[in-house]
């Protein structure tokens, strides 16, 4: 029975990490699916949000939840400015230019944060309510991980409802499947994209704040976890909320379990697995049948 509890608590830890991965990556998946824009600066928006959240808590004493909301709003607002002034110019450009432009943004973000705030790690101080352990009936577990899982479930349900049941969700799905047709039907794709881009960046900011406790938060964040976000999106499929959710859980749990049992070769295994998965299903593991 001890073994069973051990496995359960390990999987819970992986699920909690997977939730953070999902919250960060979902915006990337939708914006890439909508415009085909290769946005390597998504991690930079997550980092920006994380800094806003953590610093506003540490310096102004803002409570945790309002700080999360504040980080969401600030990052979404900043991303709209970038989207309208810079990203919009590159929608019709080749992939290479988009890659260069967004890598450039990442470098600039890393350097500016290092200059303005410093290269050290920023500590997230959890409120007392979320510290310590909670009794789940079969085992004691970290309250924060349980909080993350609950938050993740609420968010994925909300997003799923928004995606499947609202007018904007339908417009997004239509545009991901066939952009030209959607435009012909009178959907304002550019405005739709600005909205989703802002919302996706805001979500990334939330993820940056929520994950700061165990991912850390230093200027290299934008580059360090980028490969993970991209793997989740590539495996989950472009423009698919549920696909990204499953992929994030899969990668989160795998990463957690592998780091425990093979602390050295774990990353190797994840890269290898990603290559195999992408060769098997180039459109992503959970992509639908539409092109």
């Amino acid at each position: 029975m001890i073994f069973g509890v051990d496995v359960a608590s390990m999987i819970l830890g992986g699920v909690a990490a997977g939730m953070v991965l999902f919250i960060v990556s979902v915006g990337l998946s939708v914006t890439m699916g909508l415009m085909g824009f290769v946005n390597l600066a998504h991690g930079a928006f997550a980092m920006l949000g994380g800094y806003v959240i953590v610093l506003s808590m540490n310096y102004w004493g803002v409570p945790f939840l309002p700080a999360l909301a504040f980080g969401f709003v600030v990052t979404a607002a900043v991303s709209v400015v970038f989207e309208r002034t810079l990203y919009a110019r590159l929608y019709r450009a080749a992939e290479l230019e988009q890659v260069l432009f967004t890598i450039g943004l990442v470098f600039m973000t890393i350097a500016s944060v290092t200059l303005l705030i410093g290269p050290e790690n920023q500590q997230l101080r959890l409120p007392a309510m979320l510290q310590g352990q909670v009794n789940l009936g079969f085992t004691q577990y970290r309250t924060y991980s349980v909080f993350l899982i609950a938050t993740g479930i609420i968010i994925v349900l909300g997003l799923w409802l928004g995606f499947e049941r609202t007018r904007i969700g339908a417009q997004i799905r239509a545009t991901v499947d066939n952009r030209r047709m959607a435009e012909s039907l009178g959907i304002n794709v550019n405005r739709l994209f600005t909205l989703t881009f802002a919302f996706g960046s805001g979500m990334a900011a939330l993820g940056g704040g929520l994950g700061a406790e165990f991912l850390g938060l230093d200027p290299q964040y934008a580059l360090k976890y980028l490969v993970y976000f991209l793997i989740v999106v590539a495996v989950g499929g472009l423009g698919r909320v549920t696909g990204v959710f499953y992929a994030a859980l899969l990668i989160g749990v795998l990463d957690f379990v592998l780091k425990k049992y093979i602390p050295k070769g774990g990353t190797l295994f994840i890269y290898g697995l990603t290559i195999l998965l992408l060769l098997w299903r180039p459109q992503g593991l959970f992509a639908g049948k539409s092109t």
Binding site: M32, G36, V38, E95, V99, V227, L230, I231, A234, L238, K264, G265, T267, L268, Y271, G272, T274, I275, L278, L279, P282, Q283
Partner: peptide, 25 residues
Amino acid sequence: LRTQGLTLLMLSLCTMALLEEAANL
């Protein structure tokens, strides 16, 4: 080279990361 676009980008990135990790291990 069976793939293209984002998938190709990701695969080339992962192949390099795989080799780097192997050299590290």
